Amino acid sequence: MGDAERERIVDVATRLFAELGFDGTPWRLIADTTGVETGTLTGLFGDKASLYREVMLGVHQAERDALVEAAASFTPTRQGVIDLVDAYLDFHVEHPQVVALWLQRWIGDAADIPDLEERVRSLSVMMASAVQEVTAPDIDAEYMIWTIVWCVHGFLSGGIQHPGPHRYHARGEPLSPQALRRFRAHLHALIVHITAPQDDGAG
């Protein structure tokens, strides 16, 4: 079986784990959905836990690559932080399954598969180190990064729950350009308020 077929199986498993969680996705369901025998899956990946780890490490690496690329042009200014946050938001808008996978994980899914969170924390520490110089003195830079993470994950997974004709985004609805623009503007304003005052043209 070639690399393309293996990648297809990983993509299907990614979707299933994102929708149903690791605990709610039987090995047989992965086989049936991919059209591959369970024995072939076992030969390729070993077991469901190994496939799950490959999925999670793959999405983590994709996120890391996107942020490292953004960090390469980072400047220690308020606008630099805004650009970095925009890159984070854009990545997750383009890869909604990553948010879904981590939300499953955060509610206890695959609790017996350890060490994945430590990789995420190493990424948050890297980002916090990048923005430390720009952060206001009374703001914890690592918590600032996690505040952005919580906001982005919450917005993309839950939306804004208010009814009426001026509703922007609700759970289960497609994300509209208007909703994304409004949320992005909110993130930018948040960054303005939690970074040290400076004359960089970003407020």
Score class of each variant (00 low, 15 high):
G164C: 04
L103K: 03
D140G: 04
D138Y: 01
G172R: 00
R64C: 12
R171K: 07
V99W: 13
V125L: 12
I145Y: 12
I139Q: 05
I107L: 03
W150C: 15
V134D: 04
H95F: 07
E142F: 09
M126G: 11
D65S: 11
V93A: 04
P76H: 02
I107R: 03
D140W: 03
G108M: 03
W106Y: 14
D83T: 06
P137C: 08
W146H: 12
M126N: 08
H153W: 15
A66H: 04
R167N: 13
D65V: 13
S73R: 00
T147M: 06
E94C: 06
E69G: 10
V93R: 01
R64K: 14
E173Y: 07
D86Y: 09
L67V: 05
V120Y: 15
W102K: 05
V81R: 01
D83Q: 04
L103T: 04
H60I: 15
D140R: 01
E117C: 13
V152E: 10
V68L: 12
V93L: 02
A128T: 03
P76I: 05
H169A: 06
M144T: 05
G172I: 03
T147A: 08
S124M: 15
D112C: 13
G158F: 14
P76R: 02
W150N: 14
L101F: 14
A71F: 02
E94T: 08
P163M: 09
Q61M: 15
L101W: 10
S122G: 12
M144G: 09
G108V: 02
R105E: 06
E173T: 09
A170G: 06
V93W: 02
A170V: 07
